[in-house]
Design a protein around this nucleic acid. Sequence first.
RNA 1: GCACCUAUAGUUCAAUGGAUAGAACACCGGCCUCCGGAGCCGGCGAUCUGGGUUCGACUCCCGGUGGGUGCACCA
Length: 592
Amino acid sequence: MDIWFDLAKEIDALTASAAVEMEEFDESFAPDTRMADPRFGDYQVNGVLPYAKSNRTNPRALAEKLVARLRGAGIDPEYLELTIAGPGFINFTFTPRFLTDWLKRYASGEALREAASALRGGRRTVVDFPSANTAKQPHIGHLRPMVIGESVARLLEFCGAQTVRDNHLGDWGTNFGTLIMKIKQDGIRLEDLGADALPLLDRLYKEGSQLERDNPELRDISRAELVKLQNSDPENTAIWQTIVDISKKAFERIFAEMDVRTDVTLGESFYRDKVQRVYDELIEIGLAEESDGALVVWHDEVPRFSRDNERPNPFNIRKKDGASNYASTDLATVLYRLDEFQAEEIIYLTDSRQRDHFQQLFLTTRKWFEKTGRPLPDLHHVWWGAILGPDKKPFKTKSGEAVQLRELLDEARSRAFAVVTEKSPGLPESERRAIAESVGISAVKYADLSSNRTQDYVFSWERLLSFDGNTAPYLLYAVARIHSIFSKLDGGKDGTDEAAASPVETETEIALARKLIGFVSVLKQAASDLRPHFICTYLFELAGTFSSFYNADRVLVDDAPTRARRLMLCRRTLLILETGLRLLGITPLKRM
RNA sequence: GCACCUAUAGUUCAAUGGAUAGAACACCGGCCUCCGGAGCCGGCGAUCUGGGUUCGACUCCCGGUGGGUGCACCA
């Protein structure tokens, strides 16, 4: 029997093929393999229960037969034990020998990555994030797209996807009309602004919008400025370009601090000459039609997008003044990603408020590509809930403004510095600063990742910087602690040979080994649901399982095989913890 | 008004239709001459409400209640 990597998949396949050869089963049988409660085993096959029910046979007896067949079908009893429980659950438990061999087989980051790369084997995937805005200072609303997007991209890449990380910059919207109007009205010379340009632009836009609310006739001026921009008017284009450059620089600084990487930045403006083709095609195939002067797509089969609604909500792909909007550019973007990147999958990361937009985008794209004979990439919208303050309302400053990202990160650093100084007063200040930098940013990221993204979560400095509980500091500490075990051994070398390690033996060793091999299933789940919190939950549990082991079983003992296997468990825990943290976009520390 | 999301211990979060609903914080009680005490072990304590489907429901369906969000020319 091989040392399987994807254990659930192998068990599922083995069970299915055993059943195929039995007259008691037909094709409708699905093993339904899943991770089991450790009390019962490592994996469980539950599919016998519903199958027996629909075929009116005794599930327990059926399970007995299936297990007998499996025992004769290549399952090595030295590696894997099968038992039946209750009404017909089949439990699979890997033996200490298998656990130990698995740990020896998947011994490095490279080995894990290589094995995992089969999960998405080269799939060409565009990850659309973090889609920053222009003319706006980075604020807390930009946190989740960066943090969740980076982690999702890393998860996919670890699983072997070939990704293009595309920062789909919001650089072509109606807001430029307002902004240009205000800039001209105030006679502002952007080239004189220097370093404080972005906060000023942010303010100008807010003031401009307010002016429009007070004087509706200004909206026509703004609209005219936007149309001029879209028609390549040199003056407006120059203003626009300056604004975009200022914004990009500010965001690039934040990306660097947050360790967010994108491959390309193809903003909405990039598609300005590509929307006409979309209009033409959608009109030609009869998908788009005029409504109140705008060009729209109705999806009558979905009640809330249908034309006979009380409050109609069509997919508006061209405004009545002829200008494009984000629906136009998003459609052009899908086509570009298909033509240029041969995208097989596109993943969009935005907050929950854009769910309707993406649903309409996906419906429209599907009909459009079907009619024109194009392959349809898998389209996914990865969305999330809001960050709430202690009062359970959206997290804001005391004056009701959005919290600036710069201020948030600075506060994370200074709070982390205070904590690190309290815990490790002996370290030199420069090192405490460096640790605080990492702990602070990691803590903010981890808080954002550790709960199910579709839920709102409550932001609390105290909790996210705590060294107890499911937090970044706790996990970073667990990593540092294991590093220290090895740094004490002969200058970092443990002087033992893993091949000499005997099979895991004590209850706590076995529990830890089983937890470690469970990483693969968790990785798969996180990558297929695009939910990083599965990784967080797992790492936190792993750290706890390790603590129990480390407390119960002394590592540095004289007996060589025992010492070797316990050191191997330490090394592998470290490997999985560090691998997992990196998948979250967090760089582990060696000392803290 | 219509639609979507959501409701789990005192609090913050888990739980691909599976076995006794898990953690952490807080609270209470134990352990250890402890390889980093930023430790280990245990206790207390919860599925908003009413129906339904299912061998099996926190999970799926229907009706309430509370909270959030969205409803074309903003992105």
